[in-house]
């Protein structure tokens, strides 16, 4: 049975044809437009998990703020982390247009019901990891986010455009760090190579399972949320990144990686998806620590929220009395 924009349970809904026509015509769906309940739920899940990923994504880098090698690098890293907080907020706000609340989404994150990108469950062991994250993790995110700029839901597409504009400095910041290290001492070059060795395969897994194993892709594609397949995006990333690694004179840890003249793309080795499943289900190197840190930050920040409420109440009272 072919998957279409109208799920079977909405087949008789009088509003369904207009929705399908909008999707077909590349007309955006906006917050108060009729939409299948499953479309709404699917977007709430995807957008909130995207927001959680940005939010948790601040954690792997924060330890390096006090350990950055120079003031310039510290300021750049701080700006990157601020951006990530901002991106989380754009996405939470966009998700809220679909009828969920901030408290609901954070509760799902803190209780482990909601997921976030598995990549943030890996430890950031050296300064070279910081560079590698900017270069590869943000690089992979950019490819996915460029695609999402064309998604059918208006607020998500608009949030993606804003995020894409800001994300490119993240990737350049990372690459610049790698250039400094790779053109530095032998120890620095070794550190850079070691970071690449540890991050390469987890980054390739960011694009999700192979198309043949991806259960949600068909419906997501019919709804024009997903505009390109996992394998297509992954191939795009590899093709873009290999020349960059060549420039750095770093070896990508894949003995099967080679240019395929006939295909016009790089061939690469088999991905160990079992590790992805393990990390996604909560058993990665840092899952418990990341979640613990997020919950602690939320709890430790309660006094700020209370103070803001008290401050607002005081201002209102003063305005009334005046």
């Amino acid at each position: 049975m072919t998957v279409t924009a109208i799920p079977p349970e909405n087949a008789d809904d009088p509003s369904a044809p207009a929705f399908a026509a909008k999707i077909e015509a590349e007309v955006k769906i906006e917050p108060r437009d009729w939409m299948p309940e499953s479309y709404r739920k699917s977007l709430v899940r995807q957008m909130s998990q995207h927001a959680h990923s940005e939010y948790v994504g601040m954690l792997p880098e924060r330890n390096w703020l006090t350990r950055a090698p120079s003031l310039k690098r510290k300021a750049q890293l701080l700006a990157k982390i601020q951006d990530e907080g901002g991106h989380a907020l754009y996405l939470y706000s966009a998700a809220e247009t679909l009828g969920t609340s901030r408290a609901e989404m954070l509760d799902a994150l803190h209780t482990g019901r909601a997921k976030y990108a598995h990549i943030f469950n890996y430890p950031v062991l050296t300064w070279a990891d910081v560079g590698t994250i900017g270069w590869l993790v943000d690089g992979a995110a950019i490819i996915n986010q460029i695609m999402l700029c064309r998604c059918s839901y208006g607020p998500y597409a608009r949030a993606m455009e804003r995020i894409c504009r800001e994300e490119s400095f993240h990737q350049r910041q990372g690459f610049e760090i790698m250039v400094s290290l790779c053109q530095g001492t032998a120890d620095q070059r070794r550190m850079a190579q070691d970071a690449l060795n540890r991050w390469w395969w987890p980054v390739l897994m960011m694009f999700g399972p192979h198309d043949t194993a991806s259960a949600n892709s068909a419906q997501s594609t019919a709804w024009k949320i997903k505009r390109q397949s996992n394998d297509e995006l992954r191939q795009q990333f590899v093709d873009m990144t290999v020349p960059q690694a060549d420039y750095l004179e770093l070896a990508i840890p894949d003995p099967d990686l080679r240019w395929n003249e006939a295909r016009g793309h790089y061939d690469f080795g088999a991905i160990g998806f079992r590790e992805l499943m393990r990390v996604v289900s909560g058993d990665g190197p840092c899952n418990r620590e990341r979640l613990g840190a997020r919950i602690k930050a939320h709890d430790d920040g309660a006094w700020v929220r209370e103070a803001a409420m008290a401050h607002a109440a005081k201002r209102r009272a003063r305005a009334k009395a005046a």
Binding site: R102, A103, L106, D107, H110, T111, I295, H298, D299, A302, R305, E306, M309
Partner: peptide, 8 residues
């Protein structure tokens, strides 16, 4: 897990 009344 914070479930306080001062949530956003």
């Amino acid at each position: 897990v914070a479930n306080d009344a001062t949530s956003a």
